[in-house]
């Protein structure tokens, strides 16, 4: 980090595991969404991110909006329980809040690895009997699934909505992304859903290269994928209409202003149902 951006005074209340001088993607996302759960280093990173991709705030918003639509779509398909992998910092429109507006009995298990995200989620969900947060690495399905089963919240004999929204671009190729998805897929029953969105270099290659460069210097380097690669992640799922598309094109809601240019949306998104 450049000095000046990275130098953050460590206050006594910051836990040992949290290095406020090292920006994290979760807090960057929070900042782009207008959240307040971030530190100077995160905001400095966000500014550079915005230089590389001026549309970043919109992309963050669109991605969050996709999450909402995907959850509601899965609820329409009968899914009542969700495993939100890489759930991030709970700011606006968390899965359990969205889901419960139409399905009050919905159960949600959040999974994240970032300390602030986990700490905040823990506070938020403290008194919620139907939702919880697990601090696990989503690329270790065995650990995640074991811990998720341990919560007793999810019934693996009934459909589960797997949410990997805006998170897979942090999974490097050497971590076998297809294998990770497959492991989760194999743990759930047919009729379960997968909502996945991730950055692509197909849409704005120059901006994407800039983002990759910026993120190289964070704790979370990014790995954009092509449309074909992202579609391949849905192996074993029937991808629902309209397929894997730029964020705003995925089942836009009635009355939505036509102000977001799909070509500048940065992220492909899709929902599949397990065969």
């Amino acid at each position: 980090m450049e000095s000046g951006c990275g130098v953050v005074e460590r206050t006594s209340w910051v836990p040992a595991g949290v290095d406020t001088g090292l920006p994290s993607a979760a807090r960057l996302y929070d900042y782009l969404l207008g959240g307040g759960h971030n530190f100077a280093a995160d905001r400095a990173l966000a500014e550079r991110f915005l230089l590389a991709q001026p549309n970043a705030r919109a992309i963050a918003r669109l991605n969050r909006a996709f999450l909402r639509r995907a959850v509601l779509h899965l609820i329409d398909r009968g899914v009542r329980q969700f495993l939100d992998l890489g759930s991030g910092i709970p700011t606006v429109g968390n899965v359990h809040e969205i889901a419960r507006r139409s399905a009050p009995d919905a159960r949600v298990v959040y999974v994240d690895f970032e300390d602030v995200a986990v700490a905040h989620s823990r506070l938020l969900l403290e008194d919620d009997p139907l939702a919880t947060i697990l601090q696990e690495d989503m690329t270790d399905p065995t650990a995640v699934l074991g811990a998720a089963r341990g919560t007793g919240l999810l019934d693996f004999d009934r459909p589960i909505g797997l949410l990997m929204v805006g998170v897979f671009h942090f999974v490097p190729p050497e971590d076998d992304p297809a294998g990770v998805v497959a492991a989760y897929r194999d743990a759930v029953v047919p009729g379960s859903g997968l909502a996945l969105s991730q950055f692509t270099s197909d849409l704005q290659p120059a901006e994407m290269a800039g983002i990759v460069e910026v993120m190289k210097r964070s704790m979370n380097p990014m790995y954009p994928r092509t449309h074909a690669e992202i579609t391949d992640l849905f192996a074993g799922f029937d991808v629902v209409e309209p397929g894997v598309v730029p964020l705003p094109l995925w089942r836009p809601e009635e009355g939505a202003p036509d102000t977001d240019d799909p070509a500048r949306a940065g992220i492909f998104a899709g929902v599949g149902l397990k065969k």
Binding site: V14, G35, H37, A119, R122, L123
Partner: peptide, 17 residues
């Protein structure tokens, strides 16, 4: 409020640790 939440969350995490 958000700052308070962050503080509370961090404090909780710290105390836990």
């Amino acid at each position: 409020d958000r700052q308070e939440e962050v503080k509370a969350a961090l404090l909780a995490a710290k105390q836990r640790a």
